[in-house]
Design a protein around this nucleic acid. Structure first.
Lengths: 177, 177
DNA sequence: TGTACATCAGTGAACGCGCGTTCACTGATGTAC
DNA sequence: TGTACATCAGTGAACGCGCGTTCACTGATGTAC
C-alpha cells in the first residue's frame, strides 16, 4: 500500500518528533526502533525506508530537539530563560525539555556524527541567546554549563529527596544574582 | 573449586572496582555482566554468587566511585579541585573520574535505589569539600553543579572541536574568579 | 593431628527475550501513453 | 481524459546476536569428628 508524498513527509516528521521526545526521556539505549515506530503509529519494518540506521535517526531527532528549544527561546530574556530552565516543570518533563541536559552524557559515548550534531546544537543555542540578550559568548557558555549541571544533578536525585529542589533553588538564585 | 574466604573477598572487591570504572566509561547499558566479569578475571556464571542483580552491582559500583573521589579530594584546596575537575585529563579519562559527571544522566533513568545512592554520594562530596575549605553548603552545591555541567558538555563535543576546550577554559576562569 | 565430608565460589552451557536490521510481499499512488 | 503499469512506503515475519539470568556440575576450602 503505497502512500501519498505528503503522507510520507508527515510520517517521517512524526517519527523524528516522536523519537526526539522519547530519546530525551529515556536515552538512546532506552528506546527501541519497534517501540519508536509504534509510538509514531507505524510498524517497525518501514523504519529503514526513512533512515539508514537508528544512529541516523538519533542525529536527526537531536537536531529536531534543538530546533524546538530555539523556538521556545525566541524573545525570552536571560532571567526568564534561567527561571524556566531550573523550574521543577522542566526537570520533571524531559521529553519536551532541553536536549543538552537530557542527552549530553549519552552523546559523549556516541560516534562522531552524533557528537558533531550536539556541538552544532550548542552553537545554535549560543547564537540565539546572544541575539536575545547582549551577553558575551563566554558569559553564555558559562551560564549554560551552570544550568545544565544543576538540572542534571537535580534529575539524578530521588523524587522525594529535598536535595533535588535545593540544587535548583541554590543555582537559580546564584545565576540570577 | 571452592576458593578461600580471603580470595572471595578479593574477587568481590575486584568486580566492584572494575565495574565502577567501566560503568563510568560506558554507562550502565554500555557494559554487560559477562564483559564485566571477564574484565575482573572471572567468568560470568559466578556473578550471582556475589550480587542479586546487575542493578545491585551498579549501586555498589557507584558508592565505590564516590569513595575513590573522596580519597583523592582529601587535602585539596578549592582551587586545586576546580583545576583538576576541569582539566583535559579528567575530561578524557572518565573511568577514574567523577561519578557525578559520568553517571548523573544514567542515574536519572534508574530506579530509586540507584538514585538514592547517587544523592548520598553528592552529600558525601559536599561534606568532604566543606571540611577541606570553609565554604557554605550553598556555595558548594553551586560550584559542583557548575563543574558537572561544564565537564558533561565538554565531553559531548567531538574530540577535535575547539568548543570542547573552550567550555572548560571559560568555566574554569569564571569559577575561580 | 588426621580423616571424612559438607560447603559454596567459580565454571561454562543453556534459557528466554528484545534488540537492530533484512526481506518478500502488498496495494494505493503517481506516471507514461 | 482514461487506461495500464511501475513505484515504493508500509507490513509483519524472520534473521543473528548479545543481553541478564539460571543451572548442574566441579573441586579446593573449611569444618566436624
Amino acid at each position: 500500500m503505497k502512500v501519498s508524498k505528503e503522507q510520507v513527509r508527515e510520517n517521517r516528521k512524526r517519527i523524528v518528533e516522536t523519537a526526539s521526545a522519547l530519546f530525551r526521556e529515556r536515552g538512546y539505549d532506552g528506546v527501541g526502533v519497534a517501540e519508536l515506530m509504534s509510538a509514531a503509529g507505524l510498524t517497525h519494518g518501514g523504519f529503514y525506508k526513512h533512515f539508514g540506521s537508528k544512529a541516523d535517526l538519533m542525529s536527526e531527532a537531536m537536531s529536531c530537539g534543538f530546533s524546538q528549544s530555539a523556538e521556545s527561546t525566541q524573545g525570552v530574556s536571560r532571567e526568564q530563560f534561567v527561571e524556566f530552565y531550573l523550574s521543577r516543570q522542566h526537570r520533571d518533563c524531559r521529553g519536551n525539555g532541553c536536549v543538552m541536559s537530557a542527552l549530553a552524557a549519552d552523546t559523549a559515548r556516541q560516534p562522531g556524527l552524533i557528537k558533531a550534531t550536539f556541538a552544532a546544537g550548542i552553537e545554535r543555542q549560543l547564537t540565539l541567546l546572544a541575539a536575545e540578550n547582549g551577553a558575551t559568548r563566554a558569559d553564555l557558555i558559562d551560564t549554560i554549563a551552570h544550568l545544565v549541571g544543576a538540572l542534571v544533578l537535580s534529575r539524578a536525585c530521588p523524587d522525594d529527596d529535598p536535595l533535588a529542589d535545593e540544587i535548583l533553588d541554590v543555582c537559580r538564585s546564584r545565576i540570577l544574582s
